[in-house]
């Protein structure tokens, strides 16, 4: 089924993209890879302490969108971002905005667990050390233990903090990556399909963790699993061919979608 069969408009966003207490607000965002446009005129607010799920078929631009929020796309030379993206009212693509500082404030967890091939301790300590967050060894130890506890991993690895991180299981590795991210106390955590490489049990643990993390962090999560979006998020945005088709309360999106494309997608007829 293609877009042409759908009568409803696709070039404007349905639902409620804007909120009052926005942590990140995105206005008229376009993303290009060389001449090819990947994201079209996206308008969205991400509220404080919410989990927003970004769903949509493969290649719809949701990962690209996510990676623009902490300027990870800067590393791709052909990528160009237009429009306004602001974090607490500051434009993150402003020349005054330091991408290093931005990425310390907006952390990221990737699809594939990617711990550094170092010890568990070193993995978590890397960020705080980088930014000089700990004055001495005791403080650093404290940050590492607290972060591992927050990520729900401490009990499993407390006896092997100094053995190599790549020896952990996939789910543990992913939680280690989350611990590593929260060790520098970011304000926002971006998650790009964090559970797609994990088994259902590890996924469940990660989902519980996300729910727990919401108290302190703002989270944007890209996922292919509708159930996961329904379980962990408060709001959901549906992406289609580079546009946000519909945004709204997760419960509303999944029970009463307003756009036909959204409905097709969540009912499994599409994508």
């Amino acid at each position: 089924m293609t877009t042409t069969n759908i009568e409803q408009k696709v070039n404007e966003t349905w639902g409620k993209p804007f909120v009052d207490n926005a942590k990140i607000s995105i206005r008229n965002m376009d993303v290009f890879y060389a001449d090819k446009q990947a994201v079209f005129d996206v308008n969205l607010d991400i509220a404080k302490h919410e989990v927003i799920a970004l769903i949509g078929p493969s290649g719809c631009g949701k990962s690209t969108f996510l990676r623009c929020l902490n300027r990870m796309n800067d590393t791709i030379p052909i990528c160009r971002v237009a429009g306004d993206i602001s974090l607490d009212g500051e434009n993150i693509y402003d020349t005054n905005m330091d991408p290093v500082l931005l990425r310390a404030r907006v952390g990221m967890v990737f699809q594939k667990p990617n711990p550094f091939p170092k010890s568990v301790y070193e993995n978590v300590a890397y960020g705080p050390r980088l930014h000089g967050l700990a004055l001495n060894r005791a403080e650093l130890d404290d940050i590492v233990v607290t972060s591992l506890k927050k990520a729900g991993l401490y009990n499993e690895v407390k006896d092997r903090l100094h053995s190599i991180a790549t020896g952990l299981s996939g789910g543990q590795q992913q939680r280690l990556c989350i611990a590593r991210t929260i060790a520098i106390s970011p304000e926002v955590i971006l998650m790009d399909e964090p559970a797609s490489a994990l088994d259902p049990i590890a996924t469940a643990i990660i989902e519980e963790l996300i729910d727990e993390l919401r108290k302190n962090y703002t989270i944007a999560i890209v996922t292919h699993s509708m159930q996961q979006a329904a379980r962990v998020s408060q709001r959901t945005a549906y992406f289609h061919l580079g546009r946000i088709i519909e945004v709204g309360e997760t419960s509303q999106i999944f029970t009463n979608p307003q756009h036909e494309l959204t409905e097709n997608y969540i009912t499994g007829r599409f994508g």
Partner: peptide, 27 residues
């Protein structure tokens, strides 16, 4: 060297030089 290592370090706020000398060159 896997790009995911670069991403991991960049995502934590490492500068390009730090990414290169903490991770890429040792690997």
């Amino acid at each position: 060297v896997s790009p995911s290592m670069r991403e991991a370090a960049l995502g934590l706020g490492a500068s390009k030089v730090q990414v290169a000398f903490h991770h890429v060159v040792p690997l």
